[in-house]
Design a protein around this nucleic acid. Structure first.
Lengths: 194, 194
DNA sequence: ATTTCGACCGTTTTGGTTTTATGGTCGAAT
DNA sequence: ATTCGACCATAAAACCAAAACGGTCGAAAT
């Protein structure tokens, strides 16, 4: 695939991403995606094999962007406790984003949500790896007292997922910030060496 | 309300509970509820003011049953660590039950799910109180090292909620048992005094 | 050789209409 | 105190024709 083709493919992904997130999968038409690119519908099929294909590319790219954001947040400090704090705060942004995504897809075919969740699982695994790294570092420094960093990482990610549930179901849950703080404190407290 | 009336009300709740959980709210008809009770439809309105009314009673009773189950599990031991373990295992049953409930309601009106979630929130608060009790007890015994038991309880409940997400979305997630074990270990490990 | 597009096809979705089923009421009967 | 049949207004299901849609293909454009 030439460089130019790859570039236009990417533009289509960005353009379609907006449309998908506004109207959901079903109500987004190929004609609209093409019109937004000022191309004919058939031309889009030169870059993608199907509407599904575009959607998957959109989800993957979205996930990648969020992943990069989290990575950047973690790398913005050298102190493990700070890293952990930054990670959790960045993760909350991700949760909000994902929550919006779910919102537009809620009333659509379940297999699309299934796909989104598969991507998320992959994403979670990477996060667990990052977190494990942080915890191992803190352990060596003598800051954290975990002796199974991977298990601790899994527990943290699972707990963060727990925060998503009220966010997902009720749009107007304003206590979420407080809950994040609570969780952050308990996690840090639980891990910190006295 | 007489004793007899109360009794029949309860029978209707049990009977309707089965029908609701099989067909969901929408596809359950008043005629069917009445038929199952071998009564005329109008008679049901002597005990309940509306279909919604029956549904809410069903949800509340279900929640109460689960609550009792959890309480019993906790009280089945005197050792705090055992109590915690029993609590988590009992909670998993609850999660599976709730998960099924969500499944039948998934494609229905959102306000029903909203109601279910409100009941769950109330339930969660009670669980946090129970858990806090366990943790305080363990703390006095010198078994647990938490010095803010309520925060720890919140974290645990939140983490358990996190386990629900994959259970809710993908029906065939068989790794759930392993995850529960992992979480159980990490929680116990995190709390136990060395 | 790469990229675009108009014409076209089979299928799905939509919108409007009619029919049927359902939640709920009421007064009489038990 | 409890049950129920007859009844009503509304909502859901069934139906169908028209429009919209996803996707294909070969030709045209670059």
């Amino acid at each position: 695939m030439t460089v130019v083709k790859e570039e236009i493919r990417d533009q289509i992904i960005d353009s379609a991403s907006e449309i998908f997130s506004r109207f959901g999968f079903r109500k987004t038409t190929m004609d609209e995606i093409a019109r937004a690119m000022r191309k004919g519908k058939s031309s889009i099929y030169y870059y993608f094999t199907s509407k599904e294909d575009i959607f998957k590319a959109v989800v993957e790219k979205e996930a990648q962007t969020l992943r990069e954001e989290v990575t950047r947040a973690v790398e913005s400090s050298d102190v493990p406790t700070e890293k952990l704090r930054n990670y959790i705060l960045a993760r909350m942004k991700v949760i909000k984003n994902v929550s919006n995504f779910y919102d537009t897809l809620k009333n659509e075919y379940l297999n699309h949500l299934d796909f989104v969740n598969k991507v998320r699982e992959k994403y979670d695994k990477q996060e667990i790896r990052i977190l494990t790294g942080i915890l191992e570092e803190g352990q060596k420094n003598g800051v954290f007292r975990t002796d199974d960093p991977e298990l601790a990482a899994i527990a943290i990610v699972t707990a963060l997922k727990g925060l998503e549930i009220p966010l997902f179901w009720s749009k107007a849950n304003k206590n979420i910030e407080k809950r994040v703080d609570d969780l952050l404190n308990i996690l840090l407290y639980g891990l910190l060496r006295k």
